[in-house]
Design a protein around this nucleic acid. Sequence first.
DNA 1: AAAGGAGATTAATCTAGATTAAGACACTAC
DNA 2: GTAGTGTCTTAATCTAGATTAATCTCCTTT
Lengths: 194, 194
Amino acid sequence: MDTKPLLDYLRRYIDLDQEEEALFLSKVKLRKYLKGQYVVQQGDVCLYENFVLSGCLKSFHMDPEGHEHIVMFAIEDWWTGDLGSFLSQTPASLNVQCMENCVLAQLSHSDLQELYIRIPKLERFFRIIIQKAYVASQQRIVHNLSMPARDRYLHFRKQYPRIDQRVPQYMIASYLGITPEFLSKIRSQLIYEQ
Amino acid sequence: MDTKPLLDYLRRYIDLDQEEEALFLSKVKLRKYLKGQYVVQQGDVCLYENFVLSGCLKSFHMDPEGHEHIVMFAIEDWWTGDLGSFLSQTPASLNVQCMENCVLAQLSHSDLQELYIRIPKLERFFRIIIQKAYVASQQRIVHNLSMPARDRYLHFRKQYPRIDQRVPQYMIASYLGITPEFLSKIRSQLIYEQ
DNA sequence: AAAGGAGATTAATCTAGATTAAGACACTAC
DNA sequence: GTAGTGTCTTAATCTAGATTAATCTCCTTT
């Protein structure tokens, strides 16, 4: 497993010369995780921004009653972690756990600060991808406020077909903010309708 | 009304020299709006990023049944607009409306693109503020998934006391994703408890 | 001071979705 | 084979919050 997907991803947004690419890669740590392992644990400081080279992860918050609430999934070419914790280097409110064996490209906080100084173009890169993430997050809030569960599920399947196929239903239910039983009911209604 | 609050805000994150500040300000358009006026309308392209110099605004989505869903409020020192529309220059899915007379500092898309090139430090500035906005947005999703309405209301009052005092209750209800009647019930229960 | 009108409250009824609990399929693993 | 574990489904009951509708403030405006 190499870092090519990460470089391809970078090149979609900015042009780095050979030297800059080499510098960037020198700060990237490749790390393998087994299915079930935690990349971030609630209460610990999130040490890395993680780019997914292979595998599938979920990030979720565990509430005081012990219920999981899935905030997002991540697959190849996505970033994951607890950004709030990473930025301020304070305890995370989220867990990030591997649902398959994973290979991640990791950037530490101090290395990233250094990279921002030595390769200012990276500011642009991260500005652009975080803007996209923010827009998606706002759109999800609107959907949660304005759509019933059934429509949110249909929208999720359309927007993330690659993820829908890959994760168990009860996690999709958690992502949508409903119980697995209710998602099962919705699915049986959808099948009945056609 | 001048642009001092905007410069103060910039200086919290980056240092600009005299020339850069002047260039930046040359692209900023000051504009006054009356209470009730729309800064962005659903279906139109969002032309500006708007920094609030004075006043109070709401951004909301109107669903097909004609119900408003408030996505966020904005007061002095906040940014507002429909970022998704602004970035891609496509029709907005949100409305932004003044709830008081407002003065906004506006940056157009093309001017901002030019500013990014001529003042690369602005990439850093917008990266940092959008990161903060993203973290807040993610946190709101977690709260919407994991907290009952009552707790969400208490949290809102604690987090945004300046806004809580300033907007009508039925809009706070919309922001929280509940009806005004139910918010009224929650409030009367809270009063009863002390 | 009367007449609107916008917002807030209260209460009765209703419903989307939760909870609980019981099976139904898978799969490994032994 | 069967015991075990993780996932999905079905169905009965329950509840947080929606809907509807009436009443109650306050503000404006005249």
